[in-house]
Design a protein around this nucleic acid. Structure first.
Lengths: 230, 230
DNA sequence: GTCTATAAGGAGATAGAC
DNA sequence: GTCTATCTCCTTATAGAC
């Protein structure tokens, strides 16, 4: 046992500090010196543990986004079992999609920081950041898109894709600047209240996803054994 | 007349270049040296014309956001005349709110850059940037919120505010990374097609705004001349 | 493993010649 | 008005003592 009264090891302190500073200033805007000052650690320690600024960023992301990623699949699998492969109501899919990040983003004490980190990362201009993120979330994305497609089968694919992007965009926009949202709405919207946030998202986007189609209907998949034009 | 065959003066070249580099890398991520290289201008020219990096940023924003701001009010005023101060359909308000930035963001040649600039700026972590932006758009925000409130009077204020943020968030999320959206949707969503983008936004969010309420009904404003509890 | 000292380069901003 | 040279500060990263 190593000095039981010490709060945390330097590695964890640096990760916590990095998470905070990245959330505040973005990847480029955050400096390692700010981070180690906040962490009460030494600059060289960062390089010893994480190799580089980019390595630190990867570790910061993995710590939070890894569990979210796993829970995403768990929740969707559970829904698919419950509905036995049939259509799942859009409300349930939306809940399953938004709950994992929301749960992580309301971790006691660090909730607001994690919330802002998610929003910051998703909208970060740095291609390194974008690549890292999209690579990990591509399979989640397609899994949820498939579920939605089965749930609103008559909605053209293009419409579904637009509305899916809108939903995700609205969500991360609020995550980006939760205290700003609260301020500009005179406290009537509190993103820190995960239940209210989720309820509002589900209400708005289940209606949005069920709205009438805009595009022309998808051309149905060709049937090999049948012909229409004879 | 000054050398008629020269394409543009240095001021304009710098503004164009800055717009591009800010859109690509954000305010902090963009360096003046990158900008002047792109503009084929001299570093000192930036300071001569704009005073500082922040001054350059302000000018870049004003050039694009000023006209958008004016058109916002024009379109809303025209709608209010047309409907003589009564309720305007939410579809019309949404159109009036999204058309000015979309028109600007589809300027021939520079459309994609301006689009990304808007998205980048709105989600930029820098407080300077945020302050500058919100100060100019606060009055537009309240004007459109008022219009929506009259259009869906039975919707609780809190619900309206949430949905308004969702709408704005979805919009700027797409603006942030239009080519990414197009790529991840296999070309089925083209943000550069302003008509399609607008149509999809209006369809999704007019339904979202008309969705059933989530919060309890607002307490009606007190009437001075009347009492309910006697 | 931990820390100090420092390298090497990029940033914003300015002085001063022309 | 325009440009070169430079100042000063801050950045990521590393070498090497303990």
């Amino acid at each position: 046992m190593t000095t039981p009264t010490q709060t945390q090891d330097s590695q964890t302190r640096i990760l916590d500090a990095a998470e905070k500073v990245f959330a505040d200033y973005g990847f480029k805007g955050a400096s390692l010196r700010q981070i180690v000052e906040e962490a009460k650690a030494n600059l060289a320690t960062v390089y010893y543990h994480f190799g580089s600024k980019e390595g630190l960023m990867e570790t910061v992301f993995k710590r939070r986004f890894g569990p979210i990623h796993e829970e995403h699949f768990q929740m969707l699998r559970r829904l698919e079992e419950e509905y036995k492969g049939g259509a799942i109501p859009v409300e349930k899919i939306l809940e399953a999609m938004l709950t994992p990040p929301l749960r992580m983003a309301t971790t006691p004490g660090k909730g607001e920081t994690i919330m802002r980190l998610i929003g910051r990362v998703v909208t970060d201009p740095n291609p390194q950041v974008q690549e890292l993120l999209r690579r990990q979330h591509r399979d989640v994305r397609t899994a949820y898109l498939d579920a939605f497609q089965r749930s609103v089968p008559r909605l053209p694919k293009a419409d579904l894709l637009w509305r899916f992007e809108f939903c995700w965009g609205a969500f991360v926009f609020v995550l980006c600047n939760p205290s700003g949202i609260e301020k500009f709405t005179d406290g009537m919207c509190k993103p820190s209240d995960a239940g209210a946030f989720l309820g509002q998202m589900v209400a708005a986007f289940s209606a949005g996803l069920r709205a009438p189609a805009v595009s022309k209907p998808d051309r149905p998949a060709k049937r090999v054994t049948q012909r229409r034009d004879t």
